[in-house]
Simulated assay, not measured.
Amino acid sequence: MANHTLFLSLLALSCSLAIAYEPSPLQDFCVADPSSSAFVNGRACMDPKLVQADHFSFSGLHLPRNTSNKLGSVVSPVTVAQLPGLNTLGIALARIDYAPWGVVPPHVHPRGTEILTVLEGSLEVGFVTSNPENRLITKFLQMGDAFVFPVGLVHYQRNVGHGNAVSISALSSQNPGVITVANAVFGSNAPIPADTLVKAFQVDKNLVDYLQLTF
């Protein structure tokens, strides 16, 4: 009886894990229909008879981006918003351009694991494990190296070379989402009460006020 109960418990756990990520499609494809008003977990499907090859194609990832901003980096996503044919397929892509010493600041993808490959230059990358360890796992990457950021963990990238750098990332969701830590904490709408942030970060209120104005 105990073994039977254990088996059922493991089966229930396996089923819950199986549905924790995007489900497998039940048809050949489900091209996103941006004109639909249906509210579903993802995007509503376009009539298959109206689907064209362009719905599965995206161009321009070979073109360098302008990185003249405060961070010195630009992310060019290819999610279901840019490529409707990704709908229900559970994958996405992004090109990232870095100026010398440019950074992609600490952020989280709440719905997708990311695997990054360096195409040009040298990068420092890392992610932080969950509480209570909060351990930083970091590595320096060269052209051709790959690195995985597990879903939901805070991670970052930094160009550590004197020239431009480029990477490409694959993500395990058609819409992995992105939460930039600084923007979310100090730039939320409406603002998180300053007293809460003072206690959370153990800093002076003047610094919190400055950061909230900055973001």
Rank of each mutant, 00 (worst) to 15 (best):
H4L: 08
H4M: 04
L6T: 11
L6Q: 12
L6A: 14
F7S: 10
S9H: 10
C15T: 10
L17K: 10
L17T: 11
A18Y: 06
I19K: 07
Y21P: 04
Y21A: 14
E22F: 01
P23A: 10
P23C: 08
L26Q: 12
Q27S: 15
A38M: 11
A44H: 08
K49H: 10
K49N: 14
L50E: 13
F56L: 02
F56T: 02
L61M: 15
H62K: 09
L63N: 10
R65D: 12
N66C: 12
T67F: 03
L71I: 03
S73C: 12
V78L: 02
A81Q: 03
Q82K: 02
L83Q: 02
L83Y: 01
G85K: 01
G90Q: 02
L93S: 08
A94S: 14
D97P: 13
A99H: 02
A99F: 03
A99Q: 07
G102K: 07
P105S: 01
P106C: 01
V108D: 01
L119F: 13
G121P: 12
V125I: 08
G126K: 00
F127S: 10
T129L: 01
S130M: 07
N131L: 05
N131Y: 06
N131A: 15
L136P: 11
L136S: 11
A146S: 15
V148P: 08
P150R: 00
P150I: 02
P150N: 00
V151F: 03
V151H: 05
V154W: 01
V154I: 15
V154M: 04
H155E: 08
G163Y: 06
V166F: 04
A170C: 08
L171C: 10
S173T: 04
P176Y: 00
V178T: 14
I179F: 00
V181N: 02
A182V: 05
A182T: 05
N183A: 14
V185D: 01
G187Q: 02
A190K: 10
A194L: 04
T196R: 05
L197G: 13
V198E: 10
A200W: 06
A200D: 08
F201P: 11
F201K: 06
D204Q: 15
K205F: 12
V208H: 00
V208Q: 03
V208D: 06
